[in-house]
Amino acid sequence: MSQTASTSAPTLTPQFCFNERVLRDFLRLSRSTIDDSITQNLNALLTPAQRGFDPSSTANRQTDSKFRLSVDPAACQKFKDDVLFPAWQTRSDVLNYCAGVATSPDPDDPDLILRETESAKDRERVVDERLDPYSARFFPREARTESLANLIRNERTVEEIIRFRTWGLVNERCNESTSWEKALNNWRERQQR
């Protein structure tokens, strides 16, 4: 699969959002293709040695970050503009759309009647907590919009962590000094021109 294939946006519909497995799979695939393999993606941008292979370069293992090669700034910028930022934007668009779905009324909720029935039964219950202290507990079913809202909150937190980690490696290898938020916003502004 190419790197850009993971950044293609799915068709955004409420059904897509409410199918939490498909939503999670999309996010996971996009993250694994771009962010989880960021080191490999950045290494792929390095140009091979211009003077040929130097056998002494393998004599010692160099794990210190100061020995890591910097990537050509033009190649870095192209990677960020063509692969990284579009993937991040696509995921942001999906999360924003699904957040909107989660906060909208859901007339097609298949569990709506069941929840209303349970709620009516719960109001009619007579509870004697002396006989059964746990009988007063009632766990109403969560509306699918509430479940989706919780999922979106969690995924946004995950996205924040992943972007921070990815951008740390981009900073290191591409000699980038801005925050990921600022760099992404700059890219968005350039896209609108």
Score class of each variant (00 low, 15 high):
S65Q: 06
D54M: 11
Q62V: 02
S70A: 11
D36I: 00
T58R: 03
Q62G: 01
A59R: 08
L46R: 10
D64F: 06
T63P: 06
A49D: 12
K78S: 07
N19K: 07
E20D: 03
S32F: 08
R68Q: 02
S70Y: 07
I34T: 11
T63S: 13
T63F: 13
D64W: 10
L46W: 04
R61T: 13
A49S: 14
A74G: 01
N60H: 03
T33C: 06
F67W: 12
K78Q: 14
D54H: 11
S30Y: 00
L42A: 01
N60T: 11
L27V: 04
K66Y: 10
L69A: 13
A49G: 03
V22C: 05
S65M: 10
I38D: 01
A75R: 15
T33K: 11
S57F: 04
L27G: 01
T63Q: 14
A74E: 11
D81P: 09
R31K: 01
G52I: 06
S30E: 15
R31Y: 01
C17G: 08
Q40G: 07
Q62P: 00
F26D: 14
R61I: 10
I38M: 11
A74S: 08
C17L: 05
T39K: 02
P48F: 10
I34E: 02
T58Q: 09
S30V: 02
R28G: 02
N19D: 13
A59W: 10
Q50V: 13
R24E: 11
D25N: 12
S65H: 05
S37D: 13
D72C: 04
P48G: 04
R21F: 03
D64A: 15
K66V: 06
S57H: 03
S56K: 04
N60D: 05
L42G: 04
I34K: 00
N41V: 03
A49L: 11
N19A: 07
R24K: 01
L27K: 06
S56G: 10
L29A: 10
G52K: 12
S57A: 15
Q40I: 05
Q62F: 07
Q50A: 11
A59H: 12
D64Q: 13
A49T: 08
I34Q: 06
K66T: 11
Q40C: 00
L69E: 12
P48A: 09
R51Q: 10
D64M: 08
Q40K: 14
N60F: 09
S56E: 02
C76A: 00
T58K: 14
R61E: 15
V22E: 15
L46I: 10
F67P: 03
